[in-house]
């Protein structure tokens, strides 16, 4: 294991982020604040409690998940796409590093960034609504697991994309809709029965449900199912990455 190389990639990626840290943090914090103003204060005040939790508090875990997913995908996909775009990937490919080390460096950095952002958003949310965390251990567990899984997905997208348009396409067309339809702002039980069935195919539903449970102890689905689905999704991403590196897909000719 080339630990120095993993650390080098990780530090390099993190410093890239810190260079523009203000933008990186400001934009998610502002959009979260907007969500609170619109959903929490303007609309939310007309809602009754959801499962005994005030609506503003209810959406906190979903909002953190929304940011976690989009930021993980964005950071990780850009992190690996950028060297492909500039050509500096030559160095990575000619270095004595294994694919596992490359993934650990890039995905580790991307996941760290989105976890930091998730915690910042949690702190921001605390300014607007009462937030309590029933199971902090599980909360962190879901946070890390989700960040890692979607950073892996982002890595896959960054390898697959052959232009900046495609890099935007998946987050825009897939991740955002899935998040909005995954019970971020509502309980799935509010949906008509037929749509409840449809919602079950959405992997984000399991993440939000499990994450919300770690906060308030209420969930649309059982925690074990949530955890199982998250792990399954992680396994799928890992398998795809293993295949990418085995075949050299879009990295080597």
């Amino acid at each position: 294991m080339n630990l120095i190389a993993i650390r080098s990639i990780y530090v390099f990626e993190m410093s890239r982020w810190f260079r523009t840290v203000l933008q990186s943090i400001l934009s998610p914090v502002i959009s979260t604040t907007l969500y609170f103003v619109v959903f929490g204060a303007a609309i939310g005040s007309r809602f009754s409690d959801v499962g005994g939790i005030g609506y503003g508090s209810f959406i906190v875990p979903g909002l953190i998940m929304l940011m976690l997913l989009t930021q993980s995908v964005a950071n990780a996909s850009f992190g690996i796409y950028f060297p492909r775009f500039t050509g500096t990937i030559y160095e990575l490919l000619s270095a004595p590093v294994s694919y596992l080390e490359i993934v650990l460096g890039y995905v580790g950095a991307a996941a760290t960034k989105s976890i930091i952002l998730g915690l910042i958003i949690l702190a921001t949310a605390g300014l607007f609504v009462p937030v309590h965390i029933l199971h902090p251990f599980w909360m962190i567990g879901f946070l890390v697991l989700t960040a890692a899984t979607f950073s892996l997905l982002g890595f896959i997208i960054g390898v697959w994309a052959d232009g900046f348009e495609k890099l935007q396409l998946v987050p825009l067309l897939v991740i955002t809709p899935l998040t909005f339809l995954g019970g971020t702002f509502y309980s799935v039980q509010m949906l008509p029965p037929a749509w409840q069935k449809v919602a079950l195919v959405n992997p984000v539903l399991y993440l939000v449900s499990g994450f919300r449970w770690s906060f308030y102890g209420i969930a649309d689905l059982s925690v074990a199912v949530s955890l199982g689905m998250t792990l399954a999704f992680l396994a799928v991403c890992l398998a795809v990455i293993a295949w990418i590196f085995k075949t050299g897909y879009r990295l080597k000719t």
């Binding site: 530090v11 500039t86 004595p96």
Partner: peptide
């Protein structure tokens, strides 16, 4: 390599040190 592939936004020192780290 033949083409000038560089990290435009990084400093000389950082990018050269990074290469050393990448080689372990």
């Amino acid at each position: 390599p033949q083409e000038l592939h560089t990290d435009a936004f990084e400093t000389v020192w950082k990018t050269v040190s990074f290469s050393r780290g990448l080689w372990g």
